[in-house]
Design a protein around this nucleic acid. Sequence first.
RNA 1: AAAGAAAACUGGAUGAUCGCUCCGACCUUGUGUCGGAGAGGAAAGUCCGAACAUUUAUCUCGCCAUAGUCCCGCCUUUUGCGGGACGAAGGCGGAUAUUUGGAGAAAUUCUUAUGCAAAUAAGGAGGACUUCAAAGGAUAGUUCCUAACGGGAACCCUUCCGGGCCGCGAGGUCUGGAUGAGGACAAGUGCAACAGAGAAUAUACUGCUCGAAGAUUUAUCUUCGGGGAAAGGUGAAAAUGUGGGUCCAUAACCCACACGCUUCGGUGGUGACAUCGAAGAAGAGGCAAACUCUAUCCAAUGCAAGGGCAAGCCCUCCGACUUUACGUCGGAGGAGUACGGUAGCCCGCAUGAUCCCGCGCGCGAGUGCGGGGCUAGAGAGAUGAUCGUCGCUUCGGUUUUAUAUCGGAGUACAGAAUUCGGCUUAUAGGUUUUCUUUUUAA
RNA 2: GGGGCGUUAGCUCAGGGGUAGAGCAGUUGCCUUUUAAGCAAACGGUCGAAGGUUCGAUACCUUCACGCCCCA
Length: 124
Amino acid sequence: MAFAYNQNRLGKKKDFDEIFGSGWYLNSQTLTLRFRKTENSFSRFSVIVSTKVSKRAVDRNRLRRQVREILRKSWDRVPLGFDFMVIIKPGKKIATSDALAKELWPMVDRMINFKKYSAPVSKK
RNA sequence: AAAGAAAACUGGAUGAUCGCUCCGACCUUGUGUCGGAGAGGAAAGUCCGAACAUUUAUCUCGCCAUAGUCCCGCCUUUUGCGGGACGAAGGCGGAUAUUUGGAGAAAUUCUUAUGCAAAUAAGGAGGACUUCAAAGGAUAGUUCCUAACGGGAACCCUUCCGGGCCGCGAGGUCUGGAUGAGGACAAGUGCAACAGAGAAUAUACUGCUCGAAGAUUUAUCUUCGGGGAAAGGUGAAAAUGUGGGUCCAUAACCCACACGCUUCGGUGGUGACAUCGAAGAAGAGGCAAACUCUAUCCAAUGCAAGGGCAAGCCCUCCGACUUUACGUCGGAGGAGUACGGUAGCCCGCAUGAUCCCGCGCGCGAGUGCGGGGCUAGAGAGAUGAUCGUCGCUUCGGUUUUAUAUCGGAGUACAGAAUUCGGCUUAUAGGUUUUCUUUUUAA
RNA sequence: GGGGCGUUAGCUCAGGGGUAGAGCAGUUGCCUUUUAAGCAAACGGUCGAAGGUUCGAUACCUUCACGCCCCA
């Protein structure tokens, strides 16, 4: 499955509300991964960087582009049928591209394990 | 020459691989191929101002025009048909605008009376407009520039620092630089801790001095009653100062002058203001980023403004189901009216108070004319990631008169979100200008 | 995109031009067999940063930084 930014991007406010409302999450030192299963044959994602991470828009844009590039380069590795978002945690030093990849891939790989479970109960 | 500070301008180039957004072309209509374009001087802060859009209120403004009324013509049993005038509501456009209250008030219009009519008189409606008071917010030298602004230009004045000349001196004059959120404290009210004798109706602590009395050390001290603000000290600030005369007194007082003030007049300037002369008054402190007063300005909301569209709702046909009907579900087709206006899509949205060049006008900010250019458009938000090469700065090694070469480090601030004009703040390196310090040379 | 508020002792807050305060915490002492409570004393501050107005600024004005809240 080839990568196409237009298709594999979460766009609608509804999508975000659904993930926040009924989804799983995984944590690491600097990242949080929130995701949910879908009926689609492809996966979609988005990157969230708060202003609390950095005041400067340059830093935030760079982080988002780096994460997107990491996923794009090895898109075949991403399990299908998931909507997920990568949230950069505030308070940590801005990491390099390699360090981000090292943290991100284990979490993405673990998503496949949740395929057999049903969605958790919505916590409003 | 070196170092530093401030201001203005500038804001590295390029290759490979993999990608993103928009536009165009092509056909094989594919999440295709090819080509083109793709952040800034501040895109930032949101401190101001505008464009644009919608909304609120008023109008005695203009246009369109429905119901209705009136008039004319035609037909006629009536309903009616055609033309014209006035046109409630309504629509489109325009003007006005801080809020509240009061006073006056033109056009227009209604009623009554007189009159054939025109008109006149009285009473009302009406409110354009004028004006007064209160309350809120904003701005503040002058003239100009700008669509506008708390922006910009030139100038004026204040304060501070320096230099030349004149004067016994206070000071004057010429000139260079910096500086100011720069109306009014001579309308009223208010404020000034501590220190100090006294702080705004000034003040007598020390010291000075006159008179009287007393004491004794006989030229000093004490007490009482005056004079007086020149000396001391305090403070941010002590009621202008200079030279002389008089005097018991360096004071008061008198004379002359300097600075400052008020009024009138002349001259120069568009003006702020400058300058000259005359007369008068008799010395007036500071703070309005204290209340306040004066003059001028002021509707609200912001592109998430605002507008449009698909699906659905409706009708017809077909099929399935059953409770056989004006039923339910599904599919296809049609109409696109009315209402509604969203988590979707489109427009708004990139030709503009635009940029560049030339000429003219202006001290300048700017402006007029002519020619040329088109230069991002996302929407959980594109303009990137990785690896190199060359510049530039700096450090170290080798070599050298210069320099060359090798290695290391650094290469800023920062990312469009409706669009513009300013202001403010951030900024590696480079260039220019001004200033300061040091050294060298003349 | 638009609007509002805050920043003062370790913590929570007063003070709105005249040299900085309260409560709690912490320190020392008294009390008590000891601790707590109570009583007393002293300590602790660039008043977020810079500039301006003023004789004088924590306060008034401007710019900046940080934090919080509201509207859509």
